[in-house]
Simulated assay, not measured.
Amino acid sequence: MDSDELQVRRVLEAWARAVRRADVDAVVAVHTGDVVLFDVPPPMVVTGIDSYLRQWRLFWEAQGEGLFDVSGLTVVAGDGVAFAHGLLRIGAAGTEGFEVRLTVGLRRVDGRWLVTHEHHSVPAE
């Protein structure tokens, strides 16, 4: 595993820990201000860190601290951009939760990998 891939994985692990703890500051710390989110609940497209955090606050109100576990993560990192995809198990503490698909785009900003795009989705039925 190369250094950039390892750094991206660490960013995504920090993000998942922050979401599990409902730690707003730690979530913001690993995202760009112009982050774009394609989310499962409406609206379909969320742009900017303030709107992004509104989505997370709704999530935390609904489930509190709980499951937010990434698995099967594949990471590809280049000079200034990276992407990762895997599965994400989400749900309230003490439940089995459910899985969604996760795709994340990152870019290097001042030497740090930051999340600039997230896509959470469920299969269409």
Results as ranks from 00 to 15, higher is better:
M1D: 14
S3I: 12
S3C: 05
D4H: 08
D4P: 01
E5N: 11
E5V: 06
E5L: 04
L6V: 10
Q7L: 13
Q7N: 11
Q7G: 03
Q7D: 04
V8M: 01
R9N: 02
R9G: 07
R10H: 12
L12H: 03
L12P: 01
E13Y: 06
A14T: 14
A14N: 06
A14H: 13
W15R: 14
A16I: 09
A16W: 02
R17V: 06
R17G: 07
V19E: 03
R20T: 04
R20K: 09
D23Q: 04
V24R: 14
D25N: 12
A26S: 15
A26F: 05
A29L: 04
D34H: 08
D34W: 01
V35P: 00
V35D: 02
V36L: 07
V36H: 12
D39W: 00
V40S: 12
V40R: 05
P42I: 03
P43L: 07
M44S: 14
V45Y: 09
V45H: 07
V46S: 04
G48D: 14
G48Q: 03
G48L: 04
G48K: 00
I49N: 05
I49R: 09
D50N: 07
D50E: 15
Y52G: 10
L53Y: 05
Q55S: 13
W56R: 11
W56N: 11
W56A: 06
E61G: 07
A62H: 09
F68W: 03
D69I: 11
V70Q: 11
S71F: 15
S71T: 14
L73R: 07
T74H: 13
T74N: 15
V76K: 05
G78V: 02
D79K: 10
A82Q: 03
G86N: 12
L87K: 09
L87M: 13
I90K: 03
I90W: 01
I90M: 12
A92G: 14
A93H: 08
G94H: 07
G94S: 08
T95K: 00
T95N: 05
E96L: 09
E96P: 04
F98K: 15
V100C: 09
V100K: 08
L102D: 02
G105S: 11
G105L: 08
G105Y: 00
L106W: 00
L106E: 02
R107K: 06
R107V: 13
R108D: 06
R108H: 12
R108Y: 07
D110G: 15
G111F: 11
W113V: 05
V115F: 12
E118L: 15
E118R: 01
E118F: 01
H119D: 01
H119N: 11
H119G: 05
H120G: 08
H120F: 13
S121D: 15
S121H: 03
S121F: 05
V122F: 04
A124H: 14
E125N: 11
E125G: 12
E125R: 14
E125H: 15
